Simulated assay, not measured.
Amino acid sequence: MIAGSLKFNLPPSLNASAPPERRGIRRDHVRMMVLSKETGYACHDSFYRLDQYLNEGDVLVLNTSRTIPAILRGCLTGSQKEVEIRLAGKIDESRWHALIVGPTVQAGERISFSGRLKAAVEQPAKETPLSVICFSKSGTNLFDEIYSLGEPIRYEYIDTPWNLDYYQTVFASHPGSVEMPSAGRAFSWELIFKLRRKGIKIVFIQLHTGLSYFLDDNFDHHPSKNREEYAIPEETLSIIGEARKEGRWVIAVGTTVVRALETAFSTGQAHGWTNLFIHPGYELKAVDGILTGLHEPEASHLAMLSAFIPQDKLYGAYADAVEAKYLWHEFGDMNLII
């Protein structure tokens, strides 16, 4: 168990197995639990009323990374044994870290995904479950094949193979995340325009999310071992800097945004890699609040939330959310901590 995460009972019925649109509601009409950092007081509302909790001049920071279909299926050349590849993180234009599900592979073995796409195993898994594979294509040509052949990653609480479009935010523009940066999913363009009309500033960063689960509960996947690439435009940094000088709130939409901004403000680097682990007691330098989904028991994200709000108050709020039957995970409800 990661220090700072929480144990609690999450009934399986509260796992959101379908997108809101397939449950009969708009994506921006999911529920929202609003927590006060100071008092721990929680009120319950709908996400489309987000503008009621923010003021003119406040800043919302969103992640523009676009989800890719990160599961590829193929065969080992020669043996024809079936193998599943879960992309975990891009290394360069043709090489990726990947979880290989299926037979044990050796360095040099080749995997055929189609007549157009193959990959060689450069470095099989050793200290970690991840291997390094090199594709026969690179750059945009590789992404074209991935989009043609792949399917989005889904976990056991989702029993329907939903189309990749359901795993995108409306503002996603840069392909690269192997799991959806899900905190931004509830936004609609209508809500974004409503927020802007009120004078709330909306800015963007980019961080491509890596693979969060390696299909092995015994593997200790500590956040500090998870390196993710980020890029923050100068305009975004400038607007955040002005807001902080004026005493306005800077609200990160998602844990990915918190990691990117806190890394940038700590290192002075607008572009780079982050393995920052944010935990109870961490002194936040860039953000004042967070908008996020609801996180499962013992998730490392709960340690990050405990940097915003005392852990006992967070635990109490999560107990209330379970009692009120909020829905969890990427298709579920939202939590605003301010």
Rank of each mutant, 00 (worst) to 15 (best):
A3C: 02
M32A: 02
G4I: 05
E330F: 05
A98R: 01
A317S: 14
M334P: 02
L164D: 01
F331M: 11
S94Y: 12
R227D: 04
D320R: 11
I240F: 02
G74Y: 12
F8G: 04
Q206V: 10
G4E: 03
L142V: 06
K201F: 03
W162F: 15
S188I: 13
V101I: 10
Q80L: 10
D217E: 14
S177M: 09
S138G: 06
F135G: 00
F204Y: 15
Y213F: 14
G24P: 03
G316Y: 03
N335C: 14
A319C: 09
G74Q: 10
G268W: 07
V287M: 07
T140S: 12
L284W: 07
T140P: 00
P280K: 04
V83K: 02
A324R: 15
S112T: 14
T104C: 03
F308Q: 05
V287F: 10
G57K: 09
I240W: 08
F187D: 02
G78C: 13
N275T: 12
I91H: 05
Q80I: 06
G150E: 01
P223M: 12
V105A: 11
F265I: 01
Q123A: 11
A3T: 05
S112E: 14
L99I: 05
I251P: 00
P103F: 04
S212M: 07
A88N: 05
D92F: 09
L276P: 05
E283P: 02
C75H: 13
S136V: 09
L305R: 06
Y147K: 13
A319M: 02
Y167A: 08
D159H: 12
I133L: 07
E323Y: 11
G150Y: 11
L130Q: 00
A243T: 03
W249Q: 13
E229V: 13
L149T: 06
G199I: 12
L215N: 15
L6K: 02
A260F: 02
S177Y: 07
A260K: 06
T256N: 04
D51S: 12
Y157G: 01
P223N: 11
H271V: 15
I202V: 15
G199L: 08
P11A: 13
A243F: 11
L87A: 12
E262I: 07
